[in-house]
Structure formats: C-alpha cells, structure tokens
Design a protein around this nucleic acid. Sequence first.
DNA 1: CCCGACTCTTGCATCGTTGCAAACGATCAC
DNA 2: GTGATCGTTTGCAACGATGCAAGAGTCGGG
Lengths: 339, 339
Amino acid sequence: MRDVAEHAGVSVRTVSNVVSGYAHVSPSTRERVQRSLDELGYRMDFLAKGLRSGRTGFVALAVPFLAEPYFAELAQAVIHAAARRGITVLVESTAGDREVERRILSGGLTNVADGVLLSALTLPAADVGSAVPDFPLVMLGEHSVGDHLPRVGIDNVAAARTAVAHLVDQGCRRIVALGRNDSENGRQRTEGYRQAMAEAKVRRVNWLVVPVEDWTRAEGYAAVQELLDGDGPLPDGVFAFNDALAVGALRALDASGVRVPDDVAVASIDDIQEAAYTHPPLTSIAPDLDAIAERALDLLERQASPDAEADGPPEPAAVEPTPFRLVVRRSSQFRPAEG
Amino acid sequence: MRDVAEHAGVSVRTVSNVVSGYAHVSPSTRERVQRSLDELGYRMDFLAKGLRSGRTGFVALAVPFLAEPYFAELAQAVIHAAARRGITVLVESTAGDREVERRILSGGLTNVADGVLLSALTLPAADVGSAVPDFPLVMLGEHSVGDHLPRVGIDNVAAARTAVAHLVDQGCRRIVALGRNDSENGRQRTEGYRQAMAEAKVRRVNWLVVPVEDWTRAEGYAAVQELLDGDGPLPDGVFAFNDALAVGALRALDASGVRVPDDVAVASIDDIQEAAYTHPPLTSIAPDLDAIAERALDLLERQASPDAEADGPPEPAAVEPTPFRLVVRRSSQFRPAEG
DNA sequence: CCCGACTCTTGCATCGTTGCAAACGATCAC
DNA sequence: GTGATCGTTTGCAACGATGCAAGAGTCGGG
C-alpha cells in the first residue's frame, strides 16, 4: 500500500480511503489511485485489516465428518449463505473427537473467525457446562445441549414423530427404530419414535429400538443384518435416524432378499441427495438447510453486534426450530396384505 | 499478552519467549508466566502472528461443489493430512464458477493462506495462461491445464482405460462412455475409453460416447433414460466418468427394468463411499485420496520453502500421477450368454 | 580480583492496515 | 474582507505479535 501511495503521489491514508470506499475522496484522486492500484496489482492484506479492525470476515464451521453427505450438504449451504453476505467460511472437521469439540468451545478459533458454528455430534452436555463463551457461537443441530447457547436446527422429536407416523399411516405396525446412541440427537429421535408409536396405539411388544455406534451406512447394514439373522419376528417398517443408516439398511434388506417396500417400508431423516437414487428411492424428512444456514448466520451477527449484551437471554424466536418437510418416495409405499 | 506480562511481572517479550518455546528461559520464570497464561486464559492472536511472520498456517482448498461426495471426501482427506502437519484448511466452494476460479488463480486468497489447492472443474487452459502465480499453488485433479503449474492427481487416461478394459474382460462389447464434456478431465477419460476399445479391437460401430452437462446423478439418469428411449441397440456395458453419473445410470436402468449386471455391466471412477451401497454395488476406480492430499501438501511446502526458486521447473517426480486401483463389485459381473 | 563467556531478560522497531483528529484549501454567508 | 463551514487530505498511533540486538546478571578461569 505504501508503494501504491508513492506511485500515485498521495498519502497511505488516502489510498486506504479509496480502497475502503470512503465517501469524501475527489473523483480525480480516486481515479489516479485506482490506476496505481491496478497497475501495481495491489491486493489487500486480510491479516492487517483483521488485526486492526477486529473482524476477519471469516466464520468457522465445525462438523464431525465432512465426508458424510449430510454434513457436506450443510457445509455447502452455509458456504453459499455466507458468500452472499461477503463472509468466507472456514470448515473444520472434528472427526467426532470430543477433545477437539471441547477445544473449539473453549475458544480455539477466536481471532481466526468472527463467529463459530459448531455441529457437535458427541459432545455431552457436561462438557459444555454453563459457561457462556466469550465469542459468537451458534450450535447447529443439537437442541438441548445447553439452554444458554443459541442453536439452530429442526425439532428432532417432531421430525422423528412425523416419519414414524407416516410409516404407521402406510399400515406398518412393527416398526424398528434404527440408530439410538447416547447423543442428544439420538435421544430426541428415539423420543419422537416413542410418541408416534404411542399415538398410534401400537402395542408395546412391537416397539423395537436398535442401537448403533455411528450413524453410517456400515452400521446400518450391520444392524439390519443382525436383525434379520435373529429369530425375532420380522419388522414391517424401519425408521432410520438418518439417511446413511437407511442406505445401509436398504442394502442389507436387498442382500437378504427382503423386498422394500412390499415386505418392509423404510423412512429416515436428512434427505441427502443420495436418497433420491437409492433402491428403492428413500422416503425422508428434509430439513431446510438454507434456512438453517441463514438463521445461524443471523444469530452470529446478532451476537457480534454491540448491543448483544443488552438483551440478555436469546430471544424466543431465535430458538424456534427451523422447518422441515416429509419427502415421500417409494421406500415407504407399504400396503399390508388385506386380512 | 500485555496483561499476562503485567500479571507475571515480566516483559511482554519474555511472555512471547515462553509461548513460542524459546530455549533460554529460566524454569522459575517459565513456570510463573505459564501460570499467568493459564489464569488469564490467554489465547494467541493468529492474525498478529501471521502479520508479523508472514505465514498463517492456513491452506486454502477450492473445490467446485462441496456437496458432491467425491469432493467432500477429497476435502476430508486434505483436512486430515493437513491436521497432522498442524495446518488448518480453508475450504472454498467455487460453485463451478469460472470467474471464481480465475479470481483464485490470480491470487484472491494470498495473505489468507500460505498456499492454495485448486480443484478446477471448468477452468479452460486459456484462462490459466502461462503466468506463474506469485504464491504457492497446486492444481488437483486436472492433468494438463498448464504444464507450468504443479499438479496432483491420478492418470485419468490410464484410469479410464483400466475401467473399460475391465468391462471388456467381463465380456462386454457394446460399451457406452457416459460423461463427455468439455473439461480437461472429460477429454482424458474419453481418450482412455478410446484406447481401451481400440486395444480390445472392438468394432467402431460399437463405440458410443454420450455427452452430459455436469457429472451429477441427475445427468446420469437423464442420459441413460434418453439412451433407453432411443431406437439404437442396447449397450451391454456402461462406463461412467464418475460415480455420481453411474448412480444416476443405475437408477435409470433399474427404473426401466434393465438388469445390472445381467443385461448391462457398469463401472466408473471415484469409488465414493456411496458406491459400495448402490444397487447393485458399483465397480469403480479408487484414487488414493490420502496420497493425493499428502503429495499436494508436500508440493505446497516445497514451493513455500526459500530455495524454491532455485530449482526452476518442478521435479519430474512431482508430476507423476498418484496411484489408483480398480475395486470390483457386483455391477460389473457381466457374463454374456454363451453363443 | 578482573574480565570474558554465557544465560536470561528486555526495549525498540516493525508487519499492513484503519481510527482519530487535525490541517489544509476552497467556498459561502454576512 | 473575514470568519464559519464544508469537503478533502494527511500524520500519528495503534492492533498483537516477533526479529534483532543490547542490557543485566552469573559464573568460572586466569
């Protein structure tokens, strides 16, 4: 910038004014500086700007596994939404490591990013504690890790209930819930399953929740395989906690010659792009990723604004779940044999 | 840092020495400073450090679509490899926008990142020109956009040839190549297809290259649908340029009642995780993503090192393609009716 | 007992940019 | 003609860290 100033015969400060679009710069000066700028191929140093102004224009997004389609699509949505605001996204992959998530929560990314979006998969509430972080933070997906933290996501209980109710509507009675684990998300989706089953007055003996380690295709495959190998009565419906599990389940059912949806109906949550191309196409709950991304960024900006501390607890509207919809495809077109 | 110095009763410089692990600091001082550090919850400012030292510890990775599984998995591999070197990855999504890619090439990320990894999908060679960028840059995937730029990726011609040769081995004769477009990658994979067909002495009349816009599931579906609706003879093999296209193709074949692999064998390139769960499981060429990530980072580091300018053109070894292997699954188990 | 060598600590300048407030020149109203 | 006002430009300091080189203190050898 110093070079540019010299080349244009003005002060460094004036160059800064031109670059940052300050109003009171005479057209002639502006043009002259602009020419020097172009001629010398000047590029602004983000670091210095960030150091001086305290804002970097970065938002960090931490997800457990970027290679999992759901998170990849979420990241894409966030990047897109951020780009429209002139914000660049820094994507971190925590690998589901509790330690990494904790480090992020305790401010490991401050100074690098103006705000942090954390999609914590494994983080137990205990780790979060009740400390409110000293930097803008929004939790994605989890809806009760800590009530004091702003968060964005669908209502997991309602989503699960909707999916299971749909299976019930199709005539399924013996519905397996696939995917319980000790995550908050897992608990909530289990609860949604329970509610739907209770509402439908399905007899308790037909309730079955199958636990898995991770919500991956491999786990879904293994769990269903085991179920089929067992000696219990076969289910007529599978509600997978996410699409990856459902994809694994579909493969296992297919491998064992169980027909979907004729013998077993399948539905799940996430509606990743892959879901429209499975065999058969998968019925799934589609969260509005764009809405999630937009709202998350809104919340970050609100936290960053100076009057943030004035309004104490987050507004009720801020924690209202984002919308979702049920996308019905062939996997759930179950019609039980009459009689 | 000033606060810490005051709290510990030493100078700012000494605190800096402790933080950066300078050798000549007395144990007592070190411990005292360390205690103050912990007590005040000191966190180093990346920006200031970066501004002073000229290195940020960031590497930027630009891919066309993060939501495409192949790129998500590639990003995951890069993030993982970078993490082991203490490097943080900044993931950009260019949305396949030529303008965005060009901006990155002309240095839009300098100062933010120590180096840039660019996976350019659409960028024509003309845009690259022959100008060598003034910052560390490594191209991913593309293998002849500009010979002067270091690049990492598999040999696309060989990969395509291997996949097609495999289909030929299975007895396929009328093999459709699905995915030509005007990208460099597309040209190379088309060339590999041609070579394999020629080597197998397949009659020209059985060669067929179907063009598509993007390498997505939807395009793969549409292309195959159109093919089946046409009045030409049906193929007995499909070589898709990537797994996404293959997934779409499988779905279209299934929807039309064409059996895979009995009627048509399918193979493609990428071996994304999804490939093991399609119907039937998809035979695919698996590039070694970890090797790609490692080598790309190596090349960046070499460019960043001070003696980089000494050794003129990149070493031959640096441009040697990374390894890949053929993963055979059921989709290619074609056995033609005898006679 | 003094001096050099070594260890530990420190002050100053600096990276590239922007906030602040003053300086400058011109225009305007009285 | 003079003071107030406005638009335009500028110098200085600062953001938080590190490179450099010098200062303070300690030890051992001559």
